[in-house]
Structure formats: C-alpha cells, structure tokens
Simulated scan of single mutants.
Amino acid sequence: MRSLGFTLYLTILDIGSFINSFLIFIFSNNLSHAHLDYLYWLLAVLSFVKLLLYLDYARSFIYI
C-alpha cells in the first residue's frame, strides 16, 4: 500500500512537471525572451484560488 501511494505521488508530480513545461512553452519558445514572471504570477494566482476554495470547504465542513 505504501509503494502504491508513493507511485501515485510521483505520478502527480510528473504530471505537474509536464503541465509546467507546457505553460513555459506557451509563453515563449525561447527561454531568453520568455516572461517567466508571468508564469509565476499565474501560479501564484492559481494557488490563491485553491486557498480560497479550501477555506470555503473547511468553513462549510460539519463535524459529525
């Protein structure tokens, strides 16, 4: 069970790396001219949205 969990963790990590590479490719083909600060702002905004969704879920959670 532990090896299955570790495998799923690495799979999710790899999928995130592919998505990150795709986002960098979208911003520019040449990394010298790419505005990677836009990518990091996008990731910061997405993380903030995830935080808001988590807080909304945590607030609405009812302990049984």
Rank of each mutant, 00 (worst) to 15 (best):
S21A: 15
Y63T: 07
L36G: 00
F6R: 12
L23D: 02
H33R: 11
R59L: 03
S28L: 00
S17Y: 08
Y63M: 05
F61L: 09
V49T: 08
I15S: 07
I26V: 15
R59I: 00
L10W: 11
A34E: 06
S21H: 10
A58C: 05
I12N: 07
W41G: 00
W41N: 02
F18H: 05
R2L: 12
S17M: 06
I64Y: 11
F48E: 03
L10G: 04
L13I: 03
S47P: 14
N29V: 00
N30K: 04
F18C: 02
Y38E: 01
A34P: 01
A34W: 00
F6S: 03
R2A: 14
N30E: 09
L52T: 01
F25R: 13
V49F: 13
L52R: 05
W41D: 02
R2D: 15
D56N: 10
K50T: 07
A34Q: 06
W41T: 14
L46R: 09
L55R: 03
I24C: 04
Y57D: 10
Y63N: 02
S47A: 09
Y54D: 09
Y38F: 07
S60D: 09
F25S: 12
F6D: 08
S32K: 11
S21M: 14
M1L: 13
S32Q: 14
